[in-house]
Design a protein around this nucleic acid. Structure first.
Length: 275
DNA sequence: ACCCAGGCATTGG
DNA sequence: CCAATGCATGGG
């Protein structure tokens, strides 16, 4: 076991709320207050502890991935300081949600598949559908499921995926992506715009999916999913008294949150869920 | 029974 | 370039 230090304040419950808010996540399960996940073929346990979390088993690779999962790449101190001096709406939200460090998605494949499941439908439906995909194509360890691998889904038949609630179109996107020659790890060194271009070149992956990939997998500070329905609603309610806003309007409003668009988006979304 | 939900591609102007 | 349409499920 190893203690992973996290800059304080850190609220483990609040930070992991997204894993539970819309239903059970089979790849991210809870057992006796700890988060269980399969990383690099082994089930790991992350438990809140003094000054951070305890991670087991002890392994430098696992600890490195746990750091990403817990959002350690974000510079929260700089964000909080910036927000406190900025507009009063965001300042109040950041003060109220003190200790919230948005989790990231360490695995690019899982990030994209998760986005496909969440396109257009409610997140409650998306969680249910994703859960059936994990049960059918993933591997159960002690408490948590290993997320279905790209190789496994490349070998799947579309009707097996449709049986879990995917639309036929989305099942097509999924197996086509799995079988494509897109190298997901090769996206890491690219600029935001290059990543956006590479992702949207794939059928089934659009601007929304690219923006969330930048935000939640790559943790890019400027990522701002302006097309996201929940973010548009949050911005509308918090900044425009509920007046409906187009994606373009929300995109332009993101400029005022530079260079912290990504963290701002996460805080605005959480503020909408935690009254 | 309806309608909406953290999109996207396709088709037709 | 923009509007209209279909998609499958879960919750209200």
């Amino acid at each position: 076991m190893a203690r992973v230090e996290i800059p304080q304040p850190y609220d483990f419950e609040l930070s992991t709320e997204r894993f539970r808010a819309f239903g059970p996540d089979l790849a991210c399960r809870w057992h006796e207050g700890a988060l269980h996940r399969v990383i690099r073929g082994r089930e790991i346990r992350i438990a809140p502890a003094e000054g951070g979390v305890d991670v087991e088993p002890h392994d430098p690779w696992i600890e490195a991935e746990a750091r990403v999962l817990l959002g350690l790449p974000f510079d929260l101190d700089a964000f909080a300081g910036w927000a406190a001096r900025g507009d009063p709406v965001l300042a109040a939200i950041v003060a109220r949600l003190r200790g919230f460090r948005p989790p990231l998605q360490p695995d690019p494949w899982e990030a994209l598949v998760t986005s496909i499941t969440a396109q257009q439908v409610s997140l409650h439906a998306a969680f249910a559908i994703r859960g059936r995909l994990v049960e059918r194509f993933g591997v159960l360890h002690e408490h948590a499921w290993a997320f279905p691998t790209r190789e496994r889904l490349a070998a799947a038949r579309e009707d097996e995926i449709v049986a879990g609630g995917f639309s036929r179109r989305k099942a097509e996107y999924l197996v086509d992506l799995a079988r494509s020659d897109l190298d997901l790890d090769a996206l890491t060194p690219l600029s935001d715009d290059e990543v956006r271009e590479a992702i949207t070149a794939v059928r089934g992956l659009g601007e929304w999916t690219a923006d969330w990939f930048l935000a939640r997998h790559l943790g890019r500070p400027h990522a701002w999913p302006a097309g996201d329905l929940a973010l548009r609603k949050a911005v509308s309610v918090l900044y425009r008294d509920g007046e409906a806003l187009t994606t373009e309007e929300v995109r332009r409003m993101g400029e005022r949150f530079a260079p912290f668009q990504n963290l701002t988006a996460h805080y605005l979304l959480l503020a909408g869920r935690v009254p």
